[in-house]
Amino acid sequence: MTNPNEIHFRGANFDFNITESPIIYSILNLTPDSFYDGGVNTCIDQVLDRIETEMSYGAKIFELGGKSSKPHFDDISADEEWQRVEPYLKAIQKRFPNIVLAIDSNTNSVIERALQSGIQIINDIDGFNSQTKLDLVQQYHPSVVTMFNGRNFDEQSATLEDTMQSFFSETIARLKQAGLQKENIVIDPGVGFSDRNTLEFDLIKMRFTKQMRQFATPIMIAISQKSFVKRLFDADSGERLIPTLLFEAYMTQLGGRIIRVHNVKETQELIKTYQIFKDLLND
Rank of each mutant, 00 (worst) to 15 (best):
N3T: 11
N3Y: 07
I7G: 01
G11Q: 02
F14V: 11
D15E: 05
I18A: 02
T19M: 07
E20L: 13
E20M: 11
S21T: 15
L28D: 00
L30P: 01
P32C: 05
Y36C: 10
I44G: 00
E52G: 12
E54S: 08
Y57H: 15
A59D: 02
K60G: 07
K67S: 15
K67F: 10
K70N: 14
I76K: 06
A78V: 08
E80C: 04
E86R: 13
P87C: 04
Y88H: 03
Y88R: 08
R95A: 09
A102G: 10
N106H: 12
N106Q: 12
V110F: 03
E112H: 01
R113T: 10
R113L: 13
A114L: 03
Q116L: 14
D124I: 06
N129D: 11
S130G: 06
T132W: 01
T132L: 12
K133M: 11
V137L: 04
P142F: 02
F148T: 03
F148Y: 02
L160Q: 02
Q165H: 15
E170K: 10
T171I: 09
A173T: 14
A173F: 12
L175M: 00
L175W: 11
K176A: 14
N184Q: 09
I187M: 02
G190F: 01
F193G: 09
S194V: 08
T198G: 03
T198F: 04
L203F: 15
T209I: 15
R213E: 13
Q214N: 07
Q214M: 13
I219S: 03
M220I: 11
S224I: 07
V229R: 02
R240A: 01
L246T: 13
A249T: 09
Y250H: 09
Q253C: 10
G255C: 12
G256F: 07
I258M: 06
R260N: 09
N263A: 14
N263V: 10
L270I: 09
T273Y: 02
T273R: 06
Q275A: 01
N282I: 10
